[in-house]
């Protein structure tokens, strides 16, 4: 084992590349990046065949960077710029805007809460801040958000020690218990005929709480209820696959529910607040799903 001292270029030059790589492995558990950087600079000088950065950057842009257009299908229709109305038409314009917000639109959006929009192949739920920056087409979920929170150094502190991220999972005896645990009212009670409660659990990570509930039905069909609740300031974007059938909306007690189809599966999506997304799906009928959501307010 080579003792790690203050970075001195002459020391590293005297070591072989293999020894320097061993040092890097040792450095993995240390908080100071200065030593690792000094070693890496020496190794970089010795590198006979540098890695192609152009190819790597191109791949990063393709597979990791957020995309300007939606990940699936055609881009939603661009929102037309708001034209100023004279006072004479102000009341009519306000009423028309409110009607547009609540009505079903092709590629429309729930403008009052989180952004819900859809294309021919996906329904996308985004936090309000995500709609401004369109960070990622996929949800910044436990993998990315927790990894980012745990992995990046705390500002002002410098290089933090590694933080272990493990979800806290609580199994619940009923859907009602799971809703209570995640802090939501209005539990759906009219479960489609033939389906029985199988499991419900709430997982908590650094910035997200998730509810997963399953009901099993005929021929092992699954009705799944998934809810994500994010912390204030979180940026998220979820993509739910769908087919090209029209998205239907239903307003109940001020809450809009969006019904979509994906082959034999019917689904419903809603956002009770800007940081919560809810999704129920299964091989059931649209009417059965509507009865289910209506039962939330019975």
């Amino acid at each position: 084992m080579i003792a790690v001292k203050e970075p001195q270029i002459t020391d590293y030059k005297a070591l072989s590349s293999l020894q320097l790589e061993e040092l890097l492995c040792v450095e993995l558990d240390h908080d100071d990046p200065a030593v690792a950087l000094a070693i890496l600079e020496e190794l970089e000088l010795r590198e006979a065949a540098p890695v192609s950065c152009d190819r790597a950057w191109e791949e990063f842009c393709t597979h990791y960077l957020p995309m300007e257009a939606p990940l699936y299908g055609d881009a939603p229709p661009a929102r037309k710029p708001v034209r100023p109305f004279s006072r004479r038409f102000a009341a009519a314009a306000a009423a028309a805007c409110l009607a547009c917000v609540l009505a079903v639109q092709a590629g429309g959006a729930d403008l009052l809460r989180s952004m819900i929009r859809w294309t021919g192949t996906a329904l996308i739920v985004e936090s309000p801040s995500a709609t401004e920056s369109s960070l990622l087409p996929e949800a910044v979920d436990q993998d990315a958000a927790a990894l980012a929170a745990a992995s990046s150094p705390t500002p002002g502190v410098g290089e933090d020690a590694f933080v272990t991220v493990e979800p806290t999972v609580t199994e619940c005896a009923s859907l009602g218990d799971a809703f209570a645990l995640i802090g939501l009212e209005h539990v759906p009670t009219a479960i489609p005929a033939g389906y029985t409660f199988a499991s419900a659990a709430v997982e908590e990570l650094l910035t997200t709480r998730m509810l997963h509930a399953i009901y099993t039905g005929p021929e092992e069909a699954l009705l799944q209820i998934n809810i994500h609740r994010y912390e204030e300031g979180s940026v998220f974007s979820s993509v739910i696959p769908k087919d090209d059938a029209e998205v239907e909306s239903l307003s109940l007690r001020g809450q809009t529910f969006y019904f979509l189809t994906n082959g034999i599966y019917e689904g419903v999506v809603w956002t009770p607040d800007p940081l919560t997304e809810c999704h129920i799906s299964g091989p059931v009928t649209r009417d059965a799903l509507k009865t289910l959501v209506r039962s939330m307010y019975d």
Binding site: P33, L135, V140, A148, S152, E159
Partner: peptide, 30 residues
């Protein structure tokens, strides 16, 4: 990718190279 998510923090860091190295260490362990 994490740098994208934390771009504001990274830009504000006085040592962006160190930030990246520490993040990589965490990624490797995770």
């Amino acid at each position: 990718h994490i740098a994208c998510l934390k771009i504001a923090q990274l830009r504000a860091s006085p040592n962006s190279a160190g930030w990246l190295v520490q993040t990589l260490k965490n990624v490797l362990r995770n």
